[in-house]
């Protein structure tokens, strides 16, 4: 099949490199902001939407501190361009508590002392809730394997895993 060169994008289809309006759906609210195409979702959240709960650790996809959900799936916001998020639903740690009540996973992290410095915690919690939704947390080995994308420099892993087990085993399923 030959490609018709006439389908090349009109100049109007190209965006940037200067800042242009972008619409992002974050935690159920719609935000219209101006961004350059090179801005990551992580930087858009932190520097442009003042949502600093999502943390910047490595900024190269190796630590998991920036974990958010896109359309309900956990992803790394540092390796996602904000422009690629238009039309998708983003969820961050700021949207996890409901009506002033901590999410059961947040409460379990507190109850199990599942953090020390706390820097990786938002990413850990976003990953942990997603893990239970994915249904791959049957054994301790499952939990360790499927949480391996979230590094904890304080080595609080035993307590993080205990928190996840508690929510998994709770009657309401978290």
């Amino acid at each position: 099949m030959a490609i018709n060169q006439s389908t090349a994008p009109a100049e109007t289809g190209l965006r940037g490199p200067r800042g242009e309006p972008v619409t992002l759906d974050v935690n159920g609210a719609t935000y219209a902001i101006e961004l350059e195409p090179r801005v990551s979702l992580l930087d858009a959240l932190r520097d442009h939407l003042d949502m600093t709960g999502t943390k910047k650790g490595c900024d190269q996809g190796t630590c998991g501190a920036c974990t958010v959900w896109m359309d309900g799936r956990r992803v790394l916001s540092c390796l996602t361009l904000a422009y690629s998020c238009e039309g998708h639903q983003i969820a961050t740690i700021e949207g996890i508590a409901q009506d002033g009540e901590l999410h059961p996973m947040q409460q379990a992290f507190i109850d199990h002392d599942a953090f020390q410095c706390g820097y990786c915690t938002p990413g850990q919690i976003m990953s942990a809730i997603a893990l239970l939704r994915e249904g791959n947390a049957t054994t301790d080995a499952d939990i360790a394997e499927h949480m391996s994308g979230n590094i904890c420099r304080c080595q609080a892993y035993p307590n993080i895993h205990a928190a996840i087990r508690e929510v998994r085993d709770a009657d309401d399923g978290g």
Partner: peptide, 19 residues
Amino acid sequence: TMRPITFFRAGSIDEAVAA
């Protein structure tokens, strides 16, 4: 920091290849 880039979101395979 990444260098400035231009962005295009392709709506079809033909459009992506042409771009």
